[in-house]
Amino acid sequence: MNIIEIKNLSKEFRVGFIMKKIAALTDLNLSVEEGEIFGFIGPNGAGKTTTVKILTGLIYPTSGKAWIFGRDIRDVNIKRDIGFLPENPYFYDYLTAREFLNFYARLFSINKREIIARIDTLLDMVDLLKYKNVQLRRFSKGMLQRIGIAQALINDPKLVILDEPMSGLDPIGRTMIRDIILRMKDQGKTVFFSSHILSDVEMICDRVGMLFNGRLKDIGKLDTLLSTRVKSIEISASLMDDIYMESIKRLAANCILMDEKLFVVVNNETQKDEVLKIIEKGNGQLISLIPRRETLEDLFLKEINYR
């Protein structure tokens, strides 16, 4: 059973005075498996937050269905096992950290003794234990994001949904959030998080889904997603006789002479092998061979150029 199952999900918003229809999400199909970290990526306005809001019951889909733990998302009871951190969360800033978590705990009808213990554990986990009696209005952005995560974990959920958990944080803050997400995975939780910061996703996600203009463009394991793409290889070698240089130029995607060195970029392994053969024949010296792994960034840009 998949933890999240989304079938043909669409959402249209009506905006402005004339109620013009705008499609925020079109025919989304997606499933998230148990125990994985699923990264949901796409530029701003792609429909990530819309998807997250539909899953958490904040908005209703125009058409299509979704299930969590095999049950329809309209069933409020599934939320017992979901933790959610919205994008740029604002919290009741008149509450102290402890009151804040206590409030959310009570929405789950967790018993009192358990609440106290869990609050301390969570505050410790997000490194805010010493601020537990401080009102949230004194918290920094990073602290708020962490208390937000603690809030999402108050019910020890099986599924954690995080909307842009790293946006607006400094590098230390982002590392902290990444560590927390990895720890959730170790505890057997399924994590579904959206982001437009690709390096974060690349580092921790098992699978990613890519969303552009409300449509899912790609989904799969990060490795396969990236390896199916043509990687480029950068070869640098010493200078050789012109005949050899010319034949390399004909093969390569890109070839330049610089600093008495030859830089060659090829698009696949066969080309690489051929270039290496030529270098060998021409008694050239191989200086370096760097396979350039395509990043999510490239994928992203390619998608954008493609449109």
């Binding site: 809001k53 958490t56 019951g57 904040l58 409020v76 009871n77 599934i78 939320k79 017992r80 979901i82 959610f84 951190l85 919205p86 740029n88 969360p89 604002y90 919290f91 009741y92 959310y104 929405l107 789950f108 937000g148 809030q151 999402a152 019910n155 949904i161």
Partner: peptide, 14 residues
């Protein structure tokens, strides 16, 4: 407006 409702609605509450 302050989006505090987001976290509440995501909890098991009607």
């Amino acid at each position: 407006e302050r989006k505090t409702i987001y976290t509440i609605i995501a909890k098991p509450i009607q």
